[in-house]
Design a protein around this nucleic acid. Structure first.
Lengths: 343, 343
DNA sequence: GGGAGCCCTGAATCCATAT
DNA sequence: TATATGGATTCAGGGCTCC
């Protein structure tokens, strides 16, 4: 990066090593092994060594950024606090932290933590005084005329998009093009220069070329670099007015019964009633219900009460309200309305 | 916090000041050329001062945590990188970063950035070696039998839940009870001690009391403290049965396979069958099994049959009953029921 | 051709206890 | 403290085969 001229970049996108610290191999419940990140480039002696590395590349990135340029950095809880703090210390001005929510993350196979279902991006201007570019209306249009939020739902990179070499993934941490697409559309213009100091297999370059942005990629691994060159060479940029976007919003959110309990709409300790006095069930703190020995979800216990294989607990169970039975599904509507309106 | 005894807390929940306004007020430039330098210096100084504050309360929190205790800290992009890095530097071991997604965030009125629609929580154990509590099954049950993810959709605190004083909100950053409900349900048990060093109007205490946890709140503002006391005094804890949450098998007594053989539930000389006809094994009198040359526990021989490093023999092997395959784990349940009836 | 079902895989700090 | 062993634990999506 130090070979580039000062102030040459409109945007820097950086996907640095995450400094993962895996203790041992991880086995899937069905017997297979998880292919983790064991590459040498992700090995550091400790936080001090990682921090020094981070400060060095941030300093170089800041030098090549135009005064009004912005930087993106992506990370996980292993490294993102170090990167974020170093970025602030270096004089960058944080504009947003963006959550990449994965709709299909790897589960937590051992049941020891919450499923790690997101990664964090930091978007920052070169300085507090930067007049940075934010294509507000493009983002709003892309989000069905609602302001684009700081949490983005995007699938992980797989299928045909995932680059392979001899049947195996070419790079352990290839990012989805949709992620870079939204980033470059948000904060750059056609003709801008985008620099990626951890180019890998070139997702940033591929999307930049597609969107008519110039790109510079830096990659020390020559195998990755060769794959990236080949990948990008085979692409054509979009024609002038073809930047069609508009991504529909997802369907109605699934509501777990536990969310109603948590929100106090159905209280733990209260009773659910089956129609025609066919039984009642105690609501427990975690959103399960208990009827005699039976204990489980509203659907499972409902099925047991009906003597059926399956049951829709939302329409089966009722709560008492003002001496009337009210079907649970009505309470779900209340919760949905709360999600939509409450303030 | 330093007045509390060492190792008294199972959980610490901390909602520290976010450092939002302070810097701007402190760094009015006096004039001319000095402004730029002065700003950068003040910027650095602002972070330094905030970091020192953060290190101090984290150190105090670590002292009062039990060795297996965990800490939660919540923040936004203004401060969370500082808090996260300081937390790691202090020896805490990050378990998850959790994204509180707000379904009703404040819009970005000037259209200059992405709508800031989330806050970040960090969940960390006191040390890497801590045997921390995570109520995996309760979280899974609460989420309709899917693993709880690291992104949580919860409304901001409003409506009747929002505490008011003379028509205005009593506290500028009151957290929703649903957030604390999920946190305390995830990582504590009834009777545990929860400490909140930035108690505010007492959301942590209110939910702790509801869920049958002991709580200690620290608040320097006596108006907030008075509001919190009044608020919590008016609450009733949930009754015992409602506090029960779903448990997994981890807590249950271990049953050796030999006990089933001994009890006649599985007969010596009978065969165990692997799924998809991947092999069968002979049950021997001492509770070991044999498959060809392989001989050992149900787990060891199962692993050999799978070609895997390890195997849960209880869920791998099946017995034939009425011309149906029945998983061995069901037989263990039969034995457990036998034990329970005998007692 | 279509649908059901099986297999594979993804940035993962992923066990507890007795000896 | 290191080693051995019991045994708990997974979601979504794409690609493929097979009927």
């Amino acid at each position: 990066m130090n070979a580039l001229p000062e102030g040459c970049a409109d945007v820097v996108f950086a996907d640095p090593p995450y400094n993962l610290q895996l203790r041992r191999d991880l086995q899937r419940p069905e017997g297979g092994m998880v292919a983790g990140v064991s590459e040498e480039w992700d090995l550091f002696d400790g936080f001090e060594s990682y921090d020094a590395f981070t400060r060095a590349w941030l300093k170089a990135a800041r030098r090549i950024l135009k005064p009004d340029g912005t930087i993106w950095a992506i990370g996980s809880y292993h490294n993102v606090f170090r990167v974020g703090a170093a970025l602030q210390d270096a004089g960058f001005w944080v504009l947003n932290d963006i959550i990449w929510r994965k709709c299909n993350p790897m589960p937590n196979f051992r049941g020891t933590r919450f499923t790690n279902a997101h990664e964090t991006l930091i978007w920052a201007a070169r300085s507090e005084r930067s007049k940075y570019r934010f294509n507000y209306h493009a983002m709003k249009a892309m989000n069905d005329d609602l302001q684009m939020r700081s949490d983005w739902l995007i699938p992980i990179c797989g299928g045909n998009e995932r680059l392979k070499r001899r049947g195996a993934k070419a790079h352990p941490t290839q990012k989805p093009e949709a992620l870079l697409y939204r980033i470059l559309l948000a904060c750059s213009a056609p003709g801008d220069v985008v620099v990626d100091p951890f180019f890998g297999t070139g997702t940033t370059g591929a999307v930049a070329k597609l969107l008519g942005r110039h790109w510079i990629g830096i990659e020390e691994d020559c195998v990755y670099a060769a794959i990236a060159e080949e990948r990008i060479a085979g692409l054509l940029p979009l024609a002038g007015g073809a930047l069609a976007v508009s991504q529909g919003r997802r369907g109605e959110a699934r509501i777990p019964f536990g969310a109603l309990v948590e929100a106090g709409i159905v209280r733990p300790g209260s009773m659910l009633h089956a129609p025609a006095r066919r039984g009642e069930a105690l609501v427990r703190a975690d959103g399960t219900v208990a009827m005699g020995d039976q204990c489980g979800s509203i659907h499972q216990v409902g099925a047991a009460a009906m003597g059926a294989a399956t049951c829709n607990g939302w329409t089966f169970w009722h709560v008492v309200e003002a001496e009337q039975l009210v079907v649970l599904d009505a309470k779900r509507d209340v919760y949905r309305a709360m999600l939509a309106n409450a303030a």
